[in-house]
């Protein structure tokens, strides 16, 4: 039957639809940071929809200091071989060669991430140039739309990674949702000025005003440490959550991971969230964001 396809309709890879569509398949799920194949298996067994392969979780990047870069290809490949769920990996902002390397390794999604040390303080990578889809962080709607204009196929609100404190995740998601709601009330004349204010392309601003949502999937990230945190982000409108340090920096990672998955699916059922929250052992200690110096806030990275 394949032979009935005309030549000019040959299969096409790397389209916006397969990139954005991939993120649609992750909705309602939890994406977990892992640093070893063993952790990746624990995450998969707990019901993660994908894993983020990296050398150090954000909490350790904070502690260790220094320049944080793309992970060792051997380590990423080890994780790709260990699990059947999608594997994501991080490149530095603007470091399109790291992104090229990650694409060549066959990762399923590239996170151009503020958690790593930025390589370019003006430009992000041109994400349209890749077959592999990108997810990018955003603290507000304008930032989200600039990333989408550059080719991001998925957005995550940034939060403040490696703190175990959900306050910034809430701030950024609320900001994005509020700005979308405001656009809904604008008429055609006002959308031009809104685009200027948001520093985002008019076409994307208009699309968001019409859809009432981003044209790509929106997850939440940066500070989720408990089942209730994950459910909170879902109730606030995130379509899924990234959990970084929160799982493998806790006392019983397998149990906490499974509990966060349950609470993410049944985010509107307090009884299930209560059951999932029982006897999880130590949560990660956490950092109070109001004592975090501006220079140590990852969310400020990205432009």
């Amino acid at each position: 039957m394949a032979s009935t396809l005309p030549d000019n309709q040959a299969p096409e890879t790397g389209t916006a639809r397969v990139k954005r569509g991939m993120a649609e398949q992750l909705k309602g799920g939890v994406i977990m940071d892992v640093v070893t194949p063993e952790q990746a298996k624990i995450a998969e067994d707990a019901g993660a929809v994908a894993v983020m392969a990296l050398e150090r979780v954000p909490a350790d990047i904070r502690k260790d200091g220094g320049v944080a870069r793309m992970s060792d290809p051997d380590m990423i490949e080890g994780i790709i071989e260990a699990v059947s769920i999608p594997v994501m990996a991080k490149s530095r902002i603007g470091h399109f060669v790291e992104a090229q390397v990650l694409q060549s390794l066959g990762v399923d999604y590239i996170d151009e991430s503020e958690v790593l040390t930025p390589a370019d303080e003006v430009n992000h990578s041109d994400k349209w140039a890749f077959t592999t889809p990108f997810v990018c962080g955003a603290t507000n709607l304008g930032e989200a739309l600039r990333r989408i204009a550059e080719g991001a196929a998925m957005i995550r609100s940034k939060g403040e990674a490696g703190t175990g404190n959900v306050v910034e995740a809430v701030r950024h998601l609320r900001q994005i949702k509020n700005e979308i709601a405001r656009l809904r009330g604008y008429d055609n004349h006002e959308l031009y000025a809104a685009a200027k204010e948001l520093r985002a392309p008019y076409e994307l601003v208009k699309e968001v005003a019409e859809l009432g949502k981003l044209p790509v999937v929106l997850f939440s990230a940066g500070g989720v440490a408990t089942p209730a945190d994950a459910a909170l982000m879902r109730q606030l409108g995130a379509e899924g959550v990234f959990v970084g340090s929160g799982i493998f920096k806790s006392g019983d990672p397998a149990k906490r991971a499974a509990a966060i998955v349950k609470a993410t699916t049944f985010y509107d059922d307090p009884k299930i969230i209560a059951d999932a929250s029982r006897n999880l052992g130590e949560a990660m200690v956490g950092i109070n964001c109001d004592t975090l110096p501006e220079t140590e806030r990852y969310a400020n990275r990205g432009w």
């Binding site: 039957m1 009935t4 396809l5 309709q9 040959a10 299969p11 096409e12 890879t13 790397g14 389209t15 639809r17 397969v18 569509g21 991939m22 398949q25 999608p86 694409q103 066959g106 990762v107 399923d108 999604y109 077959t131 592999t132 889809p133």
Partner: peptide, 27 residues
């Protein structure tokens, strides 16, 4: 294959009349 091999292709589907169906294949 993995995500890099995800693709779109036109398909004839028995029981669906008219133009070919746009097949979106993701992993």
């Amino acid at each position: 294959g993995r995500q890099n091999e995800s693709f779109e292709a036109a398909l004839d589907v028995k029981g669906v009349a008219g133009d070919p169906v746009e097949g979106v294949f993701i992993r």
